[in-house]
Amino acid sequence: TTFVALYDYESRTETDLSFKKGERLQIVNNTEGDWWLAHSLSTGQTGYIPSNYVAPS
């Protein structure tokens, strides 16, 4: 499932994924509650993102 970032997010830990508003993200795993494992289609990096910062594209 592809989502789009609603806001900028700066990672707080090394497992988080930083992203910019408008960036497209492929969700890898969304069974972890409020933090989803995502892959950035812009940077190619993978990490955890706050689910309330993204919406379906």
Results as ranks from 00 to 15, higher is better:
1 T>S: 13
2 T>M: 14
2 T>N: 07
2 T>V: 07
2 T>G: 07
2 T>Y: 07
2 T>R: 03
3 F>Y: 11
3 F>H: 06
3 F>R: 03
3 F>C: 05
3 F>T: 02
4 V>T: 11
4 V>Y: 04
5 A>K: 00
5 A>Q: 00
6 L>V: 09
7 Y>N: 13
7 Y>P: 01
8 D>I: 00
8 D>F: 01
8 D>H: 13
8 D>K: 07
9 Y>G: 01
9 Y>R: 07
9 Y>C: 07
10 E>Q: 13
10 E>R: 07
11 S>C: 07
11 S>A: 13
12 R>E: 10
12 R>K: 14
12 R>C: 05
13 T>P: 01
13 T>L: 12
13 T>H: 04
13 T>A: 06
14 E>H: 11
14 E>T: 09
15 T>S: 12
16 D>V: 11
16 D>F: 04
16 D>Q: 11
17 L>C: 08
17 L>Y: 04
17 L>A: 09
18 S>Y: 08
18 S>D: 07
18 S>G: 10
19 F>D: 01
19 F>C: 14
20 K>W: 02
21 K>F: 03
22 G>N: 02
22 G>K: 01
22 G>S: 05
22 G>F: 04
23 E>D: 15
23 E>G: 00
23 E>P: 00
23 E>M: 05
23 E>S: 03
23 E>R: 00
23 E>C: 04
24 R>A: 13
24 R>W: 07
25 L>S: 01
26 Q>F: 03
26 Q>V: 07
26 Q>E: 09
27 I>N: 02
27 I>M: 11
28 V>C: 02
28 V>W: 03
29 N>R: 13
29 N>V: 10
29 N>S: 15
29 N>W: 02
30 N>T: 15
30 N>Y: 13
30 N>F: 03
30 N>L: 12
31 T>P: 05
32 E>A: 10
32 E>G: 12
33 G>N: 14
33 G>L: 08
33 G>W: 07
34 D>I: 15
35 W>D: 06
35 W>G: 05
35 W>K: 11
36 W>G: 00
37 L>T: 05
37 L>I: 15
37 L>K: 13
39 H>M: 14
39 H>L: 10
39 H>T: 08
39 H>A: 14
40 S>M: 03
40 S>K: 05
41 L>Y: 10
41 L>S: 15
42 S>W: 07
43 T>S: 13
43 T>G: 04
43 T>N: 12
44 G>R: 05
45 Q>M: 10
45 Q>P: 01
45 Q>W: 05
45 Q>L: 11
46 T>A: 11
46 T>H: 04
47 G>L: 00
47 G>M: 00
48 Y>E: 01
48 Y>I: 09
49 I>C: 14
49 I>D: 00
49 I>M: 03
50 P>R: 10
50 P>K: 10
50 P>E: 01
50 P>L: 07
51 S>Q: 08
52 N>V: 13
52 N>E: 12
53 Y>E: 00
53 Y>M: 10
54 V>M: 05
54 V>I: 10
56 P>Y: 06
56 P>A: 08
56 P>W: 02
57 S>F: 07
